[in-house]
Design a protein around this nucleic acid. Structure first.
Lengths: 363, 363
DNA sequence: TTGAAAGCGATACCAA
DNA sequence: TTGGTATCGCTTTCAA
């Protein structure tokens, strides 16, 4: 049962079946071979425990049937949701999705892109945190299709699926003002990242439009994680609470930061949303299930991921007519109000009126 | 700058440099070539925009420098933590980690293992949710090293890194009894999964030992997710609360389920931990940052992941003396008490006494 | 140190 | 339909 499963090649299968190498290949792929031939070869193959070798095949076929999804931080649930969407979009075509970590920097991202430019994968969907010229060079010179999620890059001829997270921050601010909050703070991620920069701009714009005193406190977290949000918010809040006009709302640059913000508020005895309303961005499931559930601006992550996958598939397809035109897709932001800004949670409301043997899986 | 980056091979580089193919190869790898040769070839290569092809190389070298980490659900943060640990362990050796989804079933997992048995990766670290004979066959007949995280399988000659999640459940129950709870319920994941079965057994044992009336209510969630935990707990709690002796504690089979349980409790107006103490398993960061922070039994995930990576590296190394002895590692569970069972949160306590310009990133 | 050539395992072409 | 053979891009002997 375990008889030396070393390395049986198609040559050996062909020998055992008493046919030529070519016939064996065709039989294994089930095309251009007679029933009898297929039978004989398949039998020999399974007797020998033959496993086709991917390197040999992809060397010849110039494809691996693998698509990479590369992100900075798999810990961010928004990427997990994107991954599912991508998987569902490409699986029917026989593609497998492999997840890769880009690392934090533009440099490490460029390294990854170059490494993967070697024919390991057929295409890549990339969500880079930081972009620089070197990365752009890596992207433009890569031999396989790459779609960037996160920021339009048409001037470089790079396909992208974008959203407008500056506008997203604006929506959050406007929502907070609409519910009567006036002292709004902002917890952002690093400003040298694409999302950090856009959201900073968005907050600046909103501030100028709606908060003319222009003194809204901002704190920059070390990264887009819960822990960083906790630290940043703790600093922001303890500073703010000492002043004469404590904050009554905080916009967090994503849901993970928002969780950290809420946690920090609790540590300081600040109630959410009563004393402090909090908003996130990304509309992740964990945010909707947090306590309090987090008001968040959806950036249509699932849809963007699906679109990116679609573009990738079209690029891979050999019969694509025009290779030249850059593909660009865009999804606008939407705010979903929840408990963290004082809106009763739709989830719990539904649950309360649902019979206990409900089979409706929420969300 | 963008001059048809089609497919430059080493042959063309060699031609341009006016040297032989072999010399070009040696020069690119920087061994067995003179300084002058290296210079010439490297120059020609960069002028041409040469990128070595992975298929050709791995066909010849029989290695890809890629290690797969295959899990059922990347959405579970415990796997993210494991991924980091694996990455750190193998990166120094020049290995890249790619993440793959096994899917829910033993069948889809076996499919993945077989597909990856084709030389796409050098080794695999696998955490299967369900194991059957077919999967065992796929594992034993795979040509590359595979380490299973989750359950010892020495009788099949499969390397594994295990823990004892039955004991983990026992620890949780004992903790709840120690804080004075008497009516303990259990929210588990599917019983036909490895962790589900073990934890069910663990709860049964604990019940027999500590809760002799033997009527502890159990609810099986559809999977190990927050949403499933929410649904299951809602059913369990609304059933329980109607009775004469409502539950005062629930053991959840992992942190995700625990989050769902707490959420369901809130929906029914049940306070945690005052009315209901809740424990999780896995000790994930998100659980420690949830509100209330979740008492959880650590299964040493990070350490197990590190061990798995270590074993994999040793198996890959060509000079491993004995290929025969099955490697087995084990990590025991530890309970970490937090707010969800009435223990003041160490994190918030620390934060409260920390000056606001603290740079100490928690956890 | 360098060049020439063999081969890794598969597919695909061209005859038969 | 089948057999024989060239070929994918690279590394690695073996001689020179």
């Amino acid at each position: 049962m375990d008889e030396r499963p070393g390395k049986i090649t198609l040559v050996e299968v062909a020998e055992r079946a008493g046919v030529s190498l070519g016939s064996a290949s065709r039989a294994m792929n089930g095309q251009g071979a007679s029933e009898a031939m297929i039978d004989r070869v398949r039998t020999a193959a399974s007797e020998l425990g033959y496993r086709p070798d991917a390197s040999g095949r992809s060397l010849r076929m110039r494809q691996t049937k693998q698509i990479a999804f590369a992100v900075a931080d798999i810990g961010n649930p928004v990427y997990v949701e994107m991954l599912s969407a991508i998987h569902e979009a490409v699986a029917p075509g026989g593609y497998r999705v492999v997840v890769m970590q880009t690392g934090e920097t533009a440099r490490s991202t460029a390294d990854l892109v170059r490494t993967m430019s070697a024919g390991v994968i057929d295409a890549m969907i990339l969500s880079p945190l930081r972009v620089d010229d070197d990365l752009l060079e890596a992207l433009t010179s890569a031999p396989m299709p790459i779609v960037v999620i996160g920021r339009p890059l048409p001037e470089h001829g790079i396909d992208s699926v974008s959203t407008d997270s500056a506008v997203a921050v604006g929506l959050a601010v406007e929502h907070l003002l609409a519910i009567g909050r006036t002292r709004v703070g902002f917890v952002n991620g690093p400003l040298d990242t694409t999302p950090g920069a856009a959201r900073q701009r968005g907050f600046g714009d909103a501030q100028q439009r709606h908060l003319p005193n222009n003194d809204a406190p901002v704190e920059i977290a070390d990264d887009f994680t819960v822990a960083a949000g906790l630290t940043a918010a703790h600093a922001l809040l303890s500073r703010s609470q000492r002043g004469n006009a404590p904050l009554d709302a905080i916009v967090a640059a994503n849901d993970l930061l928002a969780i950290g913000v809420i946690r920090a508020a609790r540590g300081l005895g600040i109630r959410v949303p009563e004393d402090l309303a909090v908003t996130g961005i990304d509309d992740t499931e964990i945010g909707s299930l947090f306590h309090p559930s987090i008001t968040s601006v959806s950036l249509g992550s699932t849809e963007r991921a699906r679109m990116a996958a679609q573009i990738v598939l079209e690029r891979i397809a050999p019969d694509t007519s025009r290779q030249t035109d850059v593909r660009q897709a865009h999804v606008g932001p939407t705010l979903i109000a929840r408990e963290s800004t004082g809106t009763p949670d739709p989830l719990l409301t539904a649950l309360a009126t649902t019979p206990s043997e409900s089979d409706g899986t929420p969300q």
